[in-house]
């Protein structure tokens, strides 16, 4: 298992190196190398997660280590798929180090066994709930990075400083559109994830909604992105505002992901706790 973690990490780090050198030298070869290295890393990572899932008998998200492991995998996966469509070559500069560090942190955490054995994890509803939530969150992670790129580029253009990033980042419109697409994808998939979660809750606890802090914060996150999309469609919140919103949205999402579990009690508790 450890061998797989290290192999995956090495590929992610190589990909990071490839993308960073690409940032400086702007040779397409390097960008492609970064992409393929990340893809190989992703495959190793997938094998790793599958192996763990096989051992514990369900998607391994019963502790923080597993959760991060799956989060890293989905970020890499979502990026690899979306990058096919997107023309934002520079995005790898954000994603490759992100996946590498998520994996690294995961690998340093203890692999605590599940506290109580039950069949909580083996339901179609729950599996789709977990997968959808992770994919949605991965898209929002990308949107956050794209938002940062936007702010950097906008600043360069507004301040009239033709710096390092001005040359290397694409046009504002392209960055903005790409971020928007990420939010749409993330929002759609997250909504599916929430619904399946409600259905599952109905089965297990007999009610859709139980005022669990995780549920409340998920709803807040969802509303935030809903507001962002609504603002864009109705009054044209684009550019800087949208970029800041997607960064803020991701920070709130991170709090929902980690903070709630550390600070508050609830039935999602053990999933992301040590």
């Amino acid at each position: 298992m450890n061998f797989l973690v290290i192999t995956t990490l090495i590929f992610y780090l190589l990909s990071t190196a490839g993308y960073i050198v690409y940032l400086f030298l702007q040779k397409d070869r390097l960008y492609r190398a970064g992409y393929y290295l990340l893809a190989i890393g992703f495959l190793c990572h997938a094998v790793l997660v599958c192996a763990e899932a096989f051992i514990v008998g369900h998607i391994p998200v019963h502790n923080l280590r597993g959760t991060l492991l799956v989060a890293g995998l989905t970020i890499a996966g979502v990026f690899l798929v979306l990058q096919f469509k997107f023309k934002l070559k520079i995005l790898g500069v954000y994603v490759a180090p992100l996946t590498a560090s998520v994996l690294f942190i995961a690998s340093r955490l203890p692999d605590t066994p599940m506290q109580q054995i039950n069949n909580v994890f083996n339901s179609v509803w729950l599996i789709s709930h977990i997968i959808a939530i992770f994919i949605g969150e991965a898209s929002f992670a990308l949107a956050c990075g794209i938002g940062i790129f936007y702010l950097v580029q906008e600043r360069a253009i507004k301040n009239k400083t033709q710096g390092f990033f001005f040359r290397r980042l694409p046009s504002l419109e392209l960055i903005d559109n790409t971020g928007y697409r990420c939010i749409i994808i993330g929002f759609t998939v997250l909504s599916v994830g929430l619904v399946t979660g409600f259905v599952y809750a109905e089965f297990v606890w007999g009610r859709f909604w139980s005022w669990d802090p995780k549920e409340i914060w998920s709803m807040i996150t969802w509303l935030l992105y809903a507001a962002l999309l609504h603002g864009r469609i109705s009054t044209g919140w684009r550019g800087r505002k949208a970029a800041i919103m997607s960064i803020v949205g991701f920070v709130v999402l991170l709090f929902t992901f980690f903070g709630v579990n550390f600070l508050m009690e609830g039935h999602h508790g053990e999933f992301t706790r040590f």
Binding site: Q153, I157, F166, P170, S171, L172, E173, L174, N177
Partner: peptide, 8 residues
């Protein structure tokens, strides 16, 4: 060139 950095 600047225009192309604003509009794609």
């Amino acid at each position: 060139e600047l225009g192309r950095k604003i509009f794609d």
